[in-house]
Write a protein that binds this DNA or RNA. Structure first.
Lengths: 199, 199
DNA sequence: GTCTATACTACGATAGAC
DNA sequence: GTCTATCGTAGTATAGAC
């Protein structure tokens, strides 16, 4: 619900109905609406972090790590459709309702920071080793988020544009290939591939 | 206000205060909240369409048209900061509150469709002429939206990631260069450039 | 742990005086 | 064209019975 309509677009009545409870019963489980929201977001980001861990810590080349990381990210976004929208909202929304002092909120921000840092580390490693051309790391990160998170958050508009569902196995497979191809062309150093041939 | 907090996050009281009016006076100028919203969005998208028109109708090569189009898009997003968020919301939000029957709503959807079609036409032309490799046109469109609209919609998160403001002249210039470089690498046909050297 | 009942506030919207 | 007053609804949250 939060993914589709945002924090302000969801009423507790609706949440309670969805859970098969009365409105008031929610307050027995959550301190308030904000707590419920941060709990949801934290769970989703936690799952994402788990999924992306292996790509970071593997003993492979930067190119291979990057591809693994991106594939894992896309898989996770594709398997849990609300994730992308929730992520995008977390980044784009002006979260006036979130108190930075709140430890739950701070925890979520750290989760996001760790995710970003992981990707940036791979990128920097690849640039240092000569595998990637010397792109601006933050710019490349933004572009990557756009190519992955935005795509799977684009809902009806995205389906109209793509001419079909976003989350079908075939659509996900194609998106993955297109993004990886785009990154290979976009990042690869002009001179020569430092790695084994990609095909 | 709508860009920052979304349709549901904005109250008419706040809007009225911002305009220096009483709440009720708004209803003299707009049929209701939805009408106010679509009016705002339509104005913003109309300006965007005007800005991107010249790139579409110029007599240049596909590569040059694409670069012109992207530069114009980034300039427009950069000069009017709420635009990107408003666009992204229009695409990502589950607009339950918008009635597809409403002629204003239909008009906005046509604006968006025209914008997308313009870009797709350039891309197809470039693929046909051999200037670009044969990417999936809808996928490339999504990636482009991600690289441009998302970036300028990313607010505080984006500023944290980039390590500075998103909308300063220097930041915009760098973003433009990075995106164009990425597109050149990402789209260019592997064999040879069909156009004059890009540098 | 869930319920009913309720408090209080804000919302979008309308009526009608000026 | 703007105002005050008001309507009806829905919002978050609490109190207290069961």
């Amino acid at each position: 619900m939060f993914a589709r309509r945002g924090f302000n677009g969801v009423g507790l009545r609706e949440v309670a109905d969805g859970a098969g409870l009365g409105k008031s019963s929610l307050f027995h489980h959550f301190r308030g609406k904000v707590h419920l929201y941060t709990e949801v977001v934290s769970n989703v980001f936690g799952r994402l972090e788990e999924r992306l861990g292996p790509a970071l810590n593997s003993e492979r080349s930067a190119s291979e790590k990057l591809e693994m990381w991106v594939e894992s990210l896309i898989d996770e976004l594709a398997e849990h459709p609300p994730t992308a929208r929730l992520l995008l909202r977390g980044l784009v929304e002006d979260d006036d309702f979130l108190d930075p002092e709140d430890p739950d909120v701070a925890a979520v921000e750290q989760q996001i920071a760790r995710l970003v840092l992981g990707f940036e580390r791979i990128l920097k490693e690849g640039i240092a080793s000569g595998a990637f051309r010397s792109v601006s790391v933050p710019d490349a990160t933004q572009t990557l988020i756009g190519a992955t998170v935005y795509h799977f958050a684009s809902g009806e508009f995205g389906e109209g544009l793509m001419g079909g569902p976003l989350f079908s196995a075939a659509a996900v497979r194609r998106r993955k290939q297109e993004v990886l191809a785009f990154l290979r062309h976009g990042f690869s150093a002009p001179e020569a591939e430092t790695n084994a041939p990609t095909s």
